[in-house]
């Protein structure tokens, strides 16, 4: 019943555990590439991660891609805020 090939046309199936897993894996691969390139904000890396980006966009729904990208930026911001707070705290403790 059009089982093969239909997934390409319709995009990933969020209800399928395999499809979710595949999406998460390609997301992790793309983010790892961004980390290696020293880029925080997805989409600002130029052409350096074109291949993993294509797989990521193929294996995840657009809304999921937006959500994961947004969360990556937020997580990085949180990390830098936490780092600042920690250095301030240790500086205050030293006084």
């Amino acid at each position: 019943m059009g089982w093969l090939g239909s997934s390409d046309k319709k995009g990933p199936d969020p209800v399928s555990r395999q499809d979710r897993q595949k999406c998460w894996e390609s997301r992790d691969a793309y983010f790892a590439c961004l980390d290696a390139a020293g880029v925080v904000n997805p989409g600002t890396e130029g052409t350096s991660c074109a291949a993993p980006l294509k797989a990521y966009q193929q294996n995840c729904a657009k809304s999921w891609v937006d959500y994961f990208n947004q969360r990556r930026v937020l997580a990085e911001q949180q990390k830098s805020v936490l780092a600042t707070v920690n250095t301030q705290a240790s500086a205050a403790n030293r006084k």
Partner: peptide
């Protein structure tokens, strides 16, 4: 919801 990216699963 079934289209939930990661938290629901």
């Amino acid at each position: 919801f079934t289209n939930c990216p990661d938290i629901c699963p």
